[in-house]
Structure formats: C-alpha cells, structure tokens
Design a protein around this nucleic acid. Structure first.
Lengths: 133, 133
DNA sequence: GCTTGACCTTCCAGTCACTGGAAGGATTAG
DNA sequence: CTAATCCTTCCAGTGACTGGAAGGTCAAGC
C-alpha cells in the first residue's frame, strides 16, 4: 500500500510517517519501481503503536524505547511499567501546574468588572503581583 | 542597572530579556558608554508584568496584547477579561486532555504485572488498541 | 494522445520561546 | 597582573512536526 493508505490506517499523517522514517523511528520502507514507499500490514501496526503511544503522552524517545520493548521477546514488563508510571507522574505535575494557572486566571476574572471602563483587576494583578499572581 | 540585576528583580533571565527586546516585546534599552544595557525601575516593572503573564499561561502574542492594554489609559477592562476567560477555557481543554492520557496510563499500569516476565498489558494495549487506549 | 487531478518524491523553511555556546570586550577584586 | 565575572553579538539547536515549492507518476475521462 502507498503512504497515504498507511497514514489513513495508522492515524499518522504521511508527513509524520516520512519524518519517523527519517529519524529512524520506523524502518525505511520498501520502494516500488516508481520510487513510492510501499507498506505491509506489519509496518502499519508499528505506526499504530506509535500513534497510540504518542496519544497517551510519550515523547518520541520514549516511543522508541516502548517499540524496542515491544519487539523484544525477552523483555521484562517491569521496564514498560516504569516508563508508564514515570510518564503518569509527569503528567500529574503538568496538570497541577495548569490547574494553578487556571485558578489564578479565574480569580482575576472574578475580580474584574469586564466592562467598558479602564479599571481592571487583571491588569493590576499582572502589574503588581497582587491577587493570586 | 545592568541586565543581570534587571533579570534578578524581574524573574526573567538575561537571555530572555534580550530576546524580548529583539522581538519588540520590550523597548530597546538605553546603553551605557561601554555598550551595556541600562534599565530603570519602570522597565523592570514591565518585565515583571511579562513574567507574571507568562506564568499564568499566556503566550508572547497575548502578553503583547495585555501589555498594550496595560499601557492604554483608555482601555476597556472587558478586553482583558476576554483574554483571561479564553485562556482559562484553553487551559481546561489541555487539562482534560492530560487527564485522559493519565487515566489511560494508570489503567494500563494497573493491568500490567510489572515483573521480570515478558507478558505486558501496556505493550499489548499499545499494539492492539485494547484497554482504554 | 491529452488534460486534469490526485498522488508521490525531495528538500528547505518555519513554528514557539527560549537556551547554549562561541568569540571577544569590560569591569572588579585581590 | 591575573582571574573571575560581567557584558556584547551572532549562530545553532530544541521537539515534533507542518507547509510549501518544484518536480515526477498515475488513473480516468475525452
């Protein structure tokens, strides 16, 4: 199958597939006589694996490790679990940071009239560090 | 004061101050005879404003708008409030996405033995799209 | 055979908000 | 005098793509 079909089936874009090939995340595709990349179901499965791993927050280096574990029949599931727990903790940190930002914004918005006048608790907070900022 | 003192007081790095000057987010500093940038309290206040705005999640373009409102005595607080509410909603979307990722990861981890053996619910989920993936 | 449109290829530039580092000049302390 | 610490400019790199240019290929319809 051509690259756009592989893209459609895997959930990656054609651009992304070429990019992953370029950085060695997926192996270089076989080429047809016209130079077009040709894919088999197996490569598409690898792409799906990558698409799913990316969707749950893994970066490309982690995806590489996960894919290596996936391919390694002598793997230890502990390694995959460690990656997952580490990523989960990381996500929680980012969530906490975003929640804190959001709380500050909501506090600012609550104290701002939001009318046609120039008085503005938001701009005052940003200027002076008042409020929760 | 020199740039490193302005950095210390504002919470931005010297590199970041130079960068903000380069992209026109803060005005070009007055130079001393030796070519060093010289700052007054007023510029440092602008830097603090930017540092705070960045800390609550605004991107540089939004910071530019907020700073413009801050400087505009004829402003309408409604404009600042709109920016804040929009950003807050955006943050919520990102939080939701991260929460979903985290839930998936936790579900995977819960079903993975995490031992010395190769059986692994995590890798199976990523490969087949099972679980919550 | 010709055209049109949808593919495919490579390569280069841009994104965002910095950060690191090189190469070199200025200042300060001892 | 020297060493350490500032400061300057400029260039390159980050992550993970995305957009676009320039050009080759293919299938369908006339």
């Amino acid at each position: 199958m051509n690259i756009s079909e592989a893209a459609r089936r895997s959930g990656l874009s054609s651009k992304t597939i070429r990019y992953y090939e370029e950085i060695g995340l997926i192996e270089a595709a076989r080429r047809a006589d016209n130079g077009y990349r040709q894919y088999e179901a197996e490569q598409v499965e690898n792409m799906q694996f990558l698409a799913r791993a990316r969707n749950v927050g893994f970066d490309l280096e982690e995806c590489r490790q996960l894919l290596a574990l996936h391919r390694d029949s002598g793997r230890q599931s502990r390694h995959a679990r460690e990656l997952v727990l580490e990523k989960s903790a990381h996500l929680q940190q980012r969530i906490d940071a975003l929640e804190a930002m959001k709380a500050t914004l909501e506090d600012m918005a609550a104290r701002c009239h939001g009318d046609e006048g120039p008085e503005c608790a938001i701009l005052d907070d940003l200027a002076s560090g008042g409020g929760k900022a």
